[in-house]
Simulated assay, not measured.
Amino acid sequence: MTQQARPQPGPPTDYSPARIRDAVRSVIEAETLPPIVQAGHPVLRQFAAPYDGQLNAAELDGLIARMREVMHAAPGVGLAAPQLGIPLQIAVLEDQYEVDPASAAARSREPLAFTAVINPKYQPVGNDVDTFYEGCLSVGGYQAVVARYRSVELNCLTQDGRPFRETYSGWQARIVQHETDHLHGMLYLDRAEIRSLTTNAEYAARWAQPGIAEAQLALGFRQD
């Protein structure tokens, strides 16, 4: 299966720097963890504003810390600022969950240390793709099959403003692509084989194998 044509990014956010700062302060100062924005909210379909100093150091650190808390509580392996209603190009990544060895081997899934990325962009390394079920914290209750590049090169800024470049492969590359897409106004459903769409309950009952062959046959989505 080849990766589908790249979806078009969303329109640029209409949030002013002051509105972004107010949204960040609201998230940081909240006594409880903020909810994760769900599909249908316009902020998920906007091209988030590049980070260029809209926040002071304490606000930036506070936002990243809060995003990590929300990601862990969900639980998930990545979270983008728009998922908290903040159209700013910041995301957090971390995968420390234990999975069965067969799934880990099939998906090339290895632990990913906590990483905060600012203004990320990725480029494929080669044309090979991997195709697996994928979910999203902003599309609660569902999963679908998505073809993603097997390896990508990520370019971004670190939390302290340093340029960062790294190549990721396997499941780590999938996380990088998924979260970067969020910052450009795209959801995983834009890339998905829609006939593969399944509820989490049906996925757990029927399709939670390392690969997708059985789901392809039973649900009738393409097998090229």
Rank of each mutant, 00 (worst) to 15 (best):
E202W: 07
A57R: 14
A102Q: 12
T158V: 08
A49K: 10
F114R: 14
A218V: 10
A58L: 15
G85R: 04
Q83L: 11
A205S: 12
N56K: 05
D95Q: 08
L60H: 04
R66H: 03
L217F: 05
L137F: 05
P163H: 12
T180S: 09
A49D: 06
A30K: 06
F164A: 13
A48R: 04
I86D: 00
V77L: 15
R66T: 07
T199W: 00
T198W: 02
H72D: 10
Q4R: 13
P82D: 06
G220N: 15
L63K: 14
L112N: 03
I20Q: 03
A208L: 00
E202P: 01
R109A: 13
L44M: 08
N155A: 15
L44C: 14
S196H: 09
P7H: 07
K121D: 14
A91P: 03
E94N: 04
L60R: 08
Q216M: 15
R6H: 03
M186Q: 05
A58K: 12
L217R: 15
V146L: 14
M1K: 11
E69W: 00
A192P: 05
L79F: 13
T115I: 12
A81I: 02
R68G: 11
V145R: 02
G135D: 13
R206A: 00
D160M: 03
A113R: 10
Q159M: 09
I36E: 06
I118P: 00
Y203A: 06
D224Q: 06
Q216N: 05
N155L: 09
D128T: 12
P210R: 04
D14A: 14
L197M: 14
V129I: 09
R206Y: 02
K121F: 08
S16V: 06
T180R: 02
A105Q: 15
G220A: 15
I64N: 00
T2V: 13
E110I: 09
Y203P: 01
E214Q: 15
T131F: 08
L217K: 11
R191V: 02
A208W: 02
L84N: 06
D181E: 11
E134H: 11
L187Q: 08
N200F: 13
D181M: 14
